[in-house]
Amino acid sequence: MSLIVNFYSSTIGKKVAMALSGLVLVLFVVGHMAGNLKIFAGINPASGDYKIDDYGRFLRTMGAEMLGESGVLWLVRVVLLACLVVHAVSGILLARANRAAKPEGYKVKSYRSANAASLTMIYGGLFLLFFVVFHILHFTTGTLHWSFVEGEVYANVWQSFRNFLTAAFYVVAMALLALHLYHGTWSMFQTLGVDTPRWNKGLRTLAKVVAVTIFVGFSAVPVSIAFGVLPAPIQTAKSK
């Protein structure tokens, strides 16, 4: 136990915790984005439901034989929440230590390799924390949704993003996420000690690809809806 405590109490340990939890979060986000794209897949002729709604149902029922309705989903939720907590707590602790180590900056600011992404990780991160809470109240519990219907993912999403401001907010949020990942995805490999001069270029490219993909993939939904590319929800099998 003391081994873990010692490890975590070091700056490197905290960073490793962030990288590992960050990795899980990145994988989740990538998966989530891919799932969201089902919105463009329209209606499943077999069930008569939106494919995205089916997908949501699938997520809730998968593994039901073993862990019951939503069992696996909860397991995933717990893991994600744990990662988020570890990631956020470590991030905040580190940021505080880092700021304390540099109480005073230079009169003339001059950076060569630090950039908007690397210098704003903590702000972007804190924003993401806020975003996730908002987002869950928005689309999962519906607390902050004006016409929320449990299970009707397409309708919920469409209704929200018809509002230009909501769509814009999501796009901005995705830009900030992409910025966080532009630095984070590479930084993670660096922290875990797997970057090498030979792989470096590839990993930097990977980070760029992840950032752009995440931004484009996620933003496609609010943008298409706001600009009327996706049709208004129709009565589906489920909602009848």
């Binding site: 109490s9 070091s10 700056t11 490197i12 905290k14 960073k15 580190l94 230590a97 880092n98 700021r99 304390a100 180590a101 540099k102 950076y111 060569r112 390799s113 630090a114 690397s118 210098l119 990780m121 630095h183 590479w186 930084s187 660096q190 922290t191």
Partner: peptide
Amino acid sequence: MVTQMDDENFGGCTNHGECQE
């Protein structure tokens, strides 16, 4: 060495790369 480095209150590395520059 890392323990001593931390005890001296240096900050952590978030891979800015300014050091190398």
